[in-house]
Design a protein around this nucleic acid. Structure first.
Lengths: 159, 159
DNA sequence: AGGATATTGTTTATCTGGTAAACAGTTTAA
DNA sequence: TTAAACTGTTTACCAGATAAACAATATCCT
């Protein structure tokens, strides 16, 4: 039990000394998220789609005629926040707001052909970048990772 | 090659239909991160520390006399952004900016006793909340998750 | 020595993503 | 038919983050 008070003068490179924070899932999640997100942005470039816009487009392509409310719920954001995203996609000519016969409140979002092919291209790009970024992880590891993350996600979607 | 064009009329509850996005690590990472972060905030409450303030305090407690520049680098943020965080921690009486004999530019951050105990308490709280949130994951799964996330993190710390 | 260069903490302006509250138009329920 | 609920939207706001400039100080170079 000798020698325990030498913690004061640590002025060198604490750079990769392991820290308390690393025990928390939340901290590791955040750091990993930041990295993957940066890679995503680099993949699709400033010219193109931000992550959330990409996600919105993805759902519109997969579920044509989805309403904005449903889309927002599915994306986990407020309807008010979705407006700008849909505006952007409409401005790019990737979708159009279509009126729905039965209900004059809702606007069905339908992807254009341009939107569909832009999405297909974006998917390929993102997939390639993600593959490169995660080259350290085997296919099995990636599956495990996604499944663990999905387990966490399921805790939040309760509401 | 029969029957492939029935994708149009999906107007029911698409709620938990599996979507394209789920194949991407980035998407799952983001969703999981949002949930864990919300839980963290609930744990420490609006009264108390935001995640980034908690992280800063953690490193100051672990590495007393760390400089603001080093702290910022370690947190992965800009020095300019750190100022407000340190201001807040100083305002709470959790640390003080101490001058350093050798170099009059740097301000060494030293935790107060109050800061140390506040941190210890916060760690316990966060740990308990995280444990509850991640109850679905076994201890082994949590270790695996953290290690996989750490692998991703290592790709980013290169620079 | 002294001048260029670099570093530290800081302020300011700016951007992004996101929420909350209010609103008009429309539909549904009592 | 009146009350309640829902849809898309605008507006105001907030959090976190970056970039650029700056004064004070330190280091390097010959």
């Amino acid at each position: 039990m000798a020698a325990g008070a030498k913690v004061q003068e640590v002025d060198q490179d604490d750079e990769h000394v392991i820290s308390d924070l690393e025990q928390f899932v939340g901290y590791n999640l955040k750091r990993a998220y930041v990295i993957v997100q940066a890679d995503f942005r680099e993949a699709l470039g400033q010219d193109s789609l931000a992550p959330r816009v990409f996600s919105a487009l993805s759902l519109v392509v997969q579920f044509p005629h989805i309403s904005q409310s449903k889309l927002a719920r599915r994306l986990g954001i407020e309807r008010s926040g979705l407006v700008a995203i849909v505006d952007e996609l409409e401005g790019l000519g990737y979708l159009s707001r279509a009126t729905v016969p039965g209900d004059r409140r809702v606007q069905a979002l339908v992807p254009t052909q341009k939107g569909r092919s832009a999405y297909a291209e974006a998917v390929a790009t993102v997939r390639a970048h993600e593959k490169a970024l995660l080259a350290d992880l085997s296919a099995a590891e990636q599956r495990v990772l996604i499944n663990l993350l999905r387990k966490i996600r399921s805790k939040g979607e309760v509401e």
